[in-house]
Write a protein that binds this DNA or RNA. Sequence first.
DNA 1: CAGCCCCAGGTCTCAACCAG
DNA 2: CTGGTTGAGACCTGGGGCTG
Length: 228
Amino acid sequence: MLGNKKGKMICGYVPDYVLFDLETTGTSCIYDEVIEISAVKVRSGKVVEEFSQLVNPKRPIPYAASMVNHISDEMVANEPDFGQVLPEFLTFAGDDILVGHNIQTFDMKFLYRDCERLFQQKLTNDYVDTLRVAKLCFPEWRHRRLSDLAEHYGISTRGAHRALTDCKMNQQVFEYLAKELEKMPAAKKQSKEKICPECGLPMKKRNGRFGEFWGCTGYPDCRHTENT
DNA sequence: CAGCCCCAGGTCTCAACCAG
DNA sequence: CTGGTTGAGACCTGGGGCTG
């Protein structure tokens, strides 16, 4: 949950997880705030519990953001702030693996920032980004937005861009992606899944002066290498 | 729309090698 | 030793994709 080491990204399927989604006042993890957080707890691929809470960002919601998520200032006026909601979410999530779409570059940034800001600690949960998994399954696709994946699997996108609806949609997508992963050749999965033991980032095969070697994609921050 | 990140491709840098 | 060449890693940049 909280500690001094950030969790690592996993690119694969797990049957037990907490899938979450945030709605925010914008796309900047420096200047913007969370206005809704929702999550579903999943055990053996089935939703067993839900969590959803509007958040008062203590500032006006920009028009452009309201147009996307349909959340207005009036709707959040009497809601708690994120300082109250985040501990509730963390209790709900426990030490489960967190799952979401494009969370590596978006949602996790907000969570990391606010955990640091409120508790001076890091979020230790490992996480799965379904965008990464989708890239693995459908490298030939041009787009892999959550709505594209939902449409591909015939999942209803009614009410999209509200956190809980997106969570449920994403949960079904993740279960379908799991089936795609099962169908994939082992070699293809393994080559993509080699993880750096130092920092948890994926490793990549590189050609060096002295031949092939595995290098961490976190270079230059992480300089871990392995022989092929 | 803005902001952020990833990724591929191009360029730069530097060490190794070799000829003179 | 010096200078030129080569090749691989480091670094930079622009385009594309995804989010609200």
